[in-house]
């Protein structure tokens, strides 16, 4: 009995350590974002005198509102494009057995391992060639590199789980193939679409390398680039309070999304990985 109680205490201590390790940096960012001036440079584990000016300064000193809007637009575009492409691909790869199916799935999945820098030069040319340099649509296009493999995979997996009989029933009921996909299959794989869409949104929202390379002006930047490039009066004096405020602002919606859909995301990650 005593041993079990000790083990129990050990477990809760472990959980405490886990919580501290996971949450402290986030907490610290929030605390720092509420301090300015000298207060920032003394260590307080609780903001004694919360100052909100960092939050207003972020928007005053640079087009941060514009950056947020850019991120929302790029992420939304990416999600829309990825899901549209993945819906078709998922139908083909998940519901039709044709010669070359496995190969095509492998081709799409193989892009998972493409390092972004390996395609940077060619992508740069492509985007410039399409006239999409310093343009949000160009970013969304380039993000397909990493969103397509897992959106296609998740949608394919969900498509496979729809019983063959349901599709057969729809065909017999007189539905043309596009109608079977639109009215029967897509509604049935909606959880998969939501999961894949969430992951794509988060991926696009957080992307940095392409956003850094394919945009030039403040007005076209997304938030990760804006946050990385926030600078102060001099090179050696970074405005940490403002950086933390900006960090909190862009992190809140994404963490809220993750919290609301945590079960979906966790199973999505697991499904994508375990079955792969």
């Amino acid at each position: 009995m005593r041993r079990r109680r000790l083990a129990r205490i050990g477990l809760y201590l472990g959980a405490g350590a886990f919580l501290a390790f996971t949450l402290f940096p986030v907490y610290w960012a929030a605390v720092s974002s509420l301090e300015s001036g000298a207060a920032l440079f003394t260590i307080d584990y609780w903001p004694r005198d919360p100052a909100w000016e960092n939050y207003s300064d972020v928007f005053a000193d640079q087009p941060f509102g514009r950056n947020i809007a850019n991120s929302v637009i790029v992420a939304t575009l990416t999600v829309g494009l990825s899901l549209a492409l993945a819906a078709g691909a998922g139908f083909a790869l998940g519901r039709v057995s044709f010669r070359g199916r496995r190969l095509m799935l492998a081709v799409v999945l193989a892009t998972t391992m493409f390092p972004q820098v390996a395609v940077l030069a060619g992508m740069f040319e492509l985007i410039r060639g399409l006239g999409l340099y310093n343009n949000l649509a160009g970013l969304a296009l380039s993000y397909l590199l990493f969103t397509l493999p897992f959106t296609v995979w998740v949608v394919t997996t969900f498509m496979r789980q729809v019983p063959a009989e349901i599709e057969a029933a729809a065909l017999i009921d007189g539905a043309p193939p596009w109608r079977v996909v639109w009215s029967i299959l897509l509604p049935l794989v909606r959880p998969g679409l939501v999961t894949a869409g969430l992951l794509a949104f988060i991926g696009a929202w957080n992307e940095f390398l392409f956003a850094l390379t394919f945009t030039l002006t403040d007005a076209a930047r997304t938030v990760p680039v804006a946050i990385a490039l926030i600078s102060g009066a001099s090179q050696y004096e970074l405005p940490w309070g403002r950086i933390m405020a900006a960090s909190v602002i862009v992190t809140l919606p994404i963490v809220a999304l993750a919290a609301v859909f945590q079960r979906r995301i966790a199973t999505g990650l697991a499904a994508g990985a375990i079955k792969g």
Partner: peptide
Amino acid sequence: VALVPWAVPTVVAAQV
């Protein structure tokens, strides 16, 4: 809670 660091943008994690 476990999802929080995963969801935080890498750039933000780096800055923090």
